[in-house]
C-alpha cells in the first residue's frame, strides 16, 4: 500500500502546498479587503441582479434598510360581534350552577308564583282535549313534582321543586337541600293542584322546554311501568 503513488501526493498536498495564508499585497495598510471585495461583489451581482443596476456607484446612492417590509394593517369590519358563542359563555361561567349552595326555602316563593300561574292556565280550558294541549305547553319551573312510577326503582317517591328542565331530565330540589336529576324516559310524574291530581307521562315530554311551546304535540301512549 505504501508504494502507491496516489497516497504520497495526497500527503504532500495536505501538509504544504494547498493551505496558505493570503498574500500581503491584497490587504491595505489598514488591513481591510479592498480589491478582492469589489471583484467578488461585482461577479455576485452579475449573476443575481438586473443589468441596469450593475454600476456600484449608482447603487451607493440608495439606502436599503432591512426593516423596509411593513405589515399592512387589516381593516377591521364595522360590524362588531353581537352574540356570544358557546365557548365564550363557558368562559363567563354561565353554565355553572352551584348546587351545594342552593336551598329548598329559596324556591318556595317561586312555587307560590307557579300556583297562581297554573290557576290562570286551567281556568279557561274546560274540555279534556283542550286541557291536555294547555298542559303540554305550560311551564313547569317551580312545580312540586313527585315521581309516581319509574322503571328504575330508586327514583320512586322522589319529590321536589323543579329547578331546571333539560331535553331529557328534570332537576328537582328535594327537602334535604339536594339537587337530583331524574330522566324523563320511562318515568311518570304527578302533581297536585286545587285538590286534583295531574299526571305527566315523561315520554311525551322529551323535548326542550322552549320547544314545547310551539305548535301541537303528538300524544304518545302512556307506558306501563
Amino acid at each position: 500500500m505504501s508504494d502507491s503513488p496516489f497516497l504520497k501526493t495526497v500527503d504532500e498536498s495536505v501538509t504544504g502546498s494547498v493551505f496558505k495564508d493570503l498574500p500581503l499585497s491584497i490587504f491595505n495598510q489598514d488591513g481591510i479587503l479592498k480589491d478582492v471585495s469589489n471583484k467578488f461583489v461585482s461577479t455576485f451581482l452579475k449573476n443575481r441582479v438586473d443589468s441596469r443596476l450593475l454600476n456600484l456607484k449608482e447603487l451607493s446612492k440608495y439606502s436599503f434598510p432591512l426593516e423596509q417590509i411593513r405589515v399592512k394593517k387589516k381593516k377591521c369590519s364595522k360590524k362588531r360581534q353581537q352574540l356570544l358563542s358557546v365557548s365564550e359563555k363557558k368562559q363567563l361561567g354561565l353554565f355553572k350552577i352551584n348546587t351545594k349552595k342552593l336551598k329548598f326555602d329559596d324556591f318556595v316563593p317561586i312555587h307560590n308564583l307557579w300556583v297562581q300561574y297554573m290557576d290562570e292556565v286551567i281556568q279557561e280550558s274546560s274540555d279534556s282535549s283542550q286541557l291536555h294541549q294547555k298542559l303540554m305547553k305550560a311551564d313547569y319551573h317551580g312545580c312540586f313534582l313527585v315521581v309516581c312510577a319509574a322503571r328504575c326503582s330508586p327514583y320512586l317517591g322522589v319529590s321536589g321543586i323543579v329547578m331546571q328542565e333539560t331535553r331529557n331530565t328534570f332537576k328537582l330540589i328535594t327537602g334535604n337541600n339536594r339537587v337530583k336529576t331524574i330522566p324523563k324516559k320511562n318515568t311518570n310524574f304527578a302533581f297536585q293542584h286545587n285538590g286534583k291530581f295531574y299526571k305527566i307521562v315523561g315520554n311525551n315530554f322529551q323535548s326542550l322546554s322552549y320547544e314545547r311551546a310551539k305548535g301541537k304535540q303528538k300524544q304518545a301512549k302512556s307506558v306501563d311501568v
Partner: peptide, 19 residues
Amino acid sequence: FLYQVMHKTIAKLPENLGL
C-alpha cells in the same frame, strides 16, 4: 311567568348567575 321568576331568583339567589 318566567319574567317574574327571574325577579324572584335575583332577590333570593343573587350570586347564582347560571340560573
